[in-house]
Structure formats: C-alpha cells, structure tokens
Amino acid sequence: SLGHDDVRRLIKAKGLKTIPAIMQELEWKTSCGCAKCRPALNYYLVCDWPDQYADDYQSRFINERVHANIQKDGTYSVVPRMWGGVTSAGELRAIADVVDKFGIPTVKVTGGQRIDMLGIRKEDLPAVWADLGKAGFVSGHAYAKGLRTVKTCVGSDWCRFGTQDSTGLGIRIEKFMWGSWTPAKVKMAVSGCPRNCAEATCKDVGVVCVDSGYEIHFAGAAGLDIKGTEVLGLVKTEDEALEVIVALVQMYREQARYLERIYKWAKRVGAAEIKKQILDDVEKRRAYFERFVFSQKFAQVDPWSERVSGKDKHEFRPLASVGFAEAAE
C-alpha cells in the first residue's frame, strides 16, 4: 500500500488535482475514502495546487468546517487574531461589547497572547464574527492545521535588555503568514534577547534576537512531547529572518506528512538536510519563499468574513424543532 510520501510524490508526478482523481489513479481501496485519508488528501492538494484546487469543505474536521473550536457541551470558542499579541483599547471594547451582546459566559487570555471567548452557540457564530469584523478582527485560526500565533515580548521598544524589535518582527511574520494551511498546527515566537521571555525555544519556529541579529530556531515542542528547539542559524537582518522562516515553513508544508508536527518531520528528514536546503542553498531557499508567497494569494482570505457574507450558511442553521402529536388514549 502507498504511504504519505508516495501519495505526495504521485500527486505532483501525475498532475492529480482532485480527490476522486487521486483515488481512481492510485486505486484507492474505499470508494469515498475515510476520516483519516480525506483530510490528508485535501491538505496535499491545497498545498500542491493552490491556484487550481478548490478546498473540499466535506474533507475537513468540524472545527475547520465552522472555523471555531467545538467544546464539550456543543458550544464553540472564538479567538480573533491579535498580531504579535498586541491589542488596543478599541479592540478590547469591541470584544467586551460582543461578550455582553451574546451573553458569552467565559472570556480567557490564552497562552498565545490572545483572547478566547467560550460558550458561543453555533447559530450565533456568524453574528459574533460580523461584530468582530467591524472592529477589524480576522480569524485567529485557533482551530486550524495552520499558523496559530506568533508570540512576542516587548523587545527593544520598551525593555532595557531588548536587542531588537521583537514585537515588530513578530507582527510582520504573522501578517505575512496568516491564513496558510500546514500539515499540523504551527506556533511561533520572537524573543527580544536570550532571556527568552516569549519562550521561542520550545516553539515550532522561534527567533531569539541578539546584538548581532536574529537566531532562527525550529523543531521545538511543549505538549505531549517536551523538546527544546534546534538552532537553524544566525541572520543579520529582519528581511533575512523572514525569508528563512517562510522558506523553512514552505519546505515543511511540501514535505511533511499530514498531522506531522515540525519537530517530528525534522527528526525524520534530518536537521542537517533542512539547514542545507534553507541556509546553504540560497536559490532553493528563494524558491521555497516564492512558492509560499504565491500560495498566500489564495490562502490569505478571512474565513469569518466569508461566512458573514453567507458562505456555508447551512452549517450555522439551528436544527428544526420537531413536535409529535399526542397519542389518543
């Protein structure tokens, strides 16, 4: 039977651009696939053919279908994006107004420097998003196999020890990369000095700012597995840091298996090979970067505003109440 790597290779080699085409050409054993293979195939097609493949709504799990995280009681949580963890009085007032208007029972600050509103009814999601959108918010993709957060410290703007503008770089990275789909969730951080207040050394991708530039880290973990990052290398400018990070993530997007976190992918392919392709081979790095930029033309669309405009509106309709006539005695 074919593994993930074989399927990814054959999708490109044979120019397969739909799930049915893959299943027919590769002689799939089940006619419509299953809950494991369909999300994987959908991701591979989104990654490989960003300008040609239409994302298959039915091949996504519930959280990615409704762009919110389902909770144990069947309600949902909503996390708007806060670039680099920075907010304002106006944004906070808008969130407070939404909480009051919809009677949202719990509001919590997250570990990724954002605000989570929990206990929202499914049918209220589009209206909640509409009000948040008026305040300038977009989806934080807290539910996605994609870029989640770019955590930052205050850096050289405020801190006595900050060596670089870590907040500014974090915001720049997040605004450049939001909306991108990846094999598994991606969390990033930028710390303004080696004291590492943003905890960059346990993230999928991290930056530790130093006097001489930007130390790029990758392949950390702080969940079921605990693992410090590996150092990819040191670059001198923000532009170089952005290019290296984007190229690294694009290499991961193109080569990893669905649901494989960066640290597991890096262990499988080898840190030396990643460094060779991303740091040593400038042409290859630039090619990865440019492919990511191209894919963002199609990915960087706010899913909340789309659904406020009516996309997938059937998903948010409450179930009809069905009454039963009383039986005659």
Score class of each variant (00 low, 15 high):
Glu306Ile: 09
Tyr214Val: 01
Val210Asn: 02
Asp239Pro: 01
Glu306His: 04
Lys145His: 14
Glu260His: 06
Val150Asn: 05
Pro303Tyr: 04
Thr182Asn: 12
Val207Trp: 01
Leu234Glu: 04
Ala40Thr: 05
Ala89Ser: 14
Glu230His: 13
Glu254Pro: 10
Cys193Val: 11
Ala222Glu: 12
Phe294Trp: 15
Lys236Phe: 05
Ile104Met: 03
Asn63Ser: 10
Ala299Asn: 05
Ala21Ser: 14
Val190Gln: 03
Arg60Phe: 04
Asn63Tyr: 04
Met251Asn: 03
Ile22Trp: 03
Arg253Pro: 03
Arg291Gly: 02
Gly310Pro: 13
Lys264Pro: 00
Leu41Asp: 11
Val301Lys: 15
Asp97Gly: 07
Ile171Ser: 04
Ala222Asn: 13
Glu283Asn: 13
Leu41Tyr: 14
Ala221Lys: 13
Lys72Cys: 06
Leu224Glu: 13
Gly206Pro: 01
Gln277Val: 07
Asp116Tyr: 01
Phe294Gly: 13
Lys297Tyr: 10
Arg307Phe: 07
Ala184Ser: 12
Ser77Pro: 08
Val282Lys: 15
Ala135Glu: 00
Glu91Gln: 13
Ser191Ile: 11
Asp116Ile: 07
Val186Thr: 14
Gln250Leu: 01
Leu224Asp: 11
Val99Gly: 00
Ala130Lys: 14
Asp97Asn: 14
Ala130Ser: 14
Lys151Gln: 15
Thr237Ile: 04
Asp56Val: 15
Glu230Asn: 15
Lys134Ala: 11
Glu240Tyr: 06
Lys284Ala: 01
Ala189Gln: 07
Ile19Cys: 04
Ile226Ala: 13
Tyr76Pro: 02
Phe316Asp: 00
Phe324Tyr: 11
Glu254Cys: 06
Arg285Pro: 08
Arg160Cys: 06
Ala266Thr: 01
Arg285Val: 07
Lys12Ile: 13
Ala272Gln: 12
Val249Asn: 06
Ile245Lys: 02
Cys34Gly: 10
Lys284Gly: 00
Phe61Arg: 13
Lys17Gln: 14
Ala54Cys: 09
Asp51Tyr: 06
Thr149Ala: 13
Phe161Cys: 11
Ser59Glu: 11
Gly3His: 09
Tyr143Asp: 14
Lys145Asn: 15
Val7Ile: 15
Trp83Met: 12
Glu254Met: 07
Ala222Ser: 14
Ser59Ala: 15
Val231Thr: 06
Gly111Phe: 03
Arg291Ser: 12
Ile19Trp: 03
Thr167Ser: 11
Gly136Val: 05
Glu254His: 07
Arg8Phe: 10
Arg160Leu: 08
Asp124Trp: 00
Val205Lys: 01
Glu283Met: 12
Pro318His: 05
Ile62Thr: 15
Val107Trp: 02
Thr182Asp: 03
Gly111Lys: 04
Val7Phe: 02
Leu248Pro: 06
Phe218Gly: 04
Lys275Gln: 08
Pro80Leu: 05
Gly3Asp: 15
Glu273Lys: 10
Ala320Gly: 09
His4Ile: 07
Ala198Cys: 12
Leu232Ser: 06
Asp204Pro: 02
Ile62Glu: 15
Asp280Thr: 12
Phe176Arg: 10
Ala287Pro: 00
Pro126Glu: 05
Gly168Asp: 06
Leu259Ile: 06
Cys47Leu: 11
Ala68Arg: 05
Ser31Thr: 12
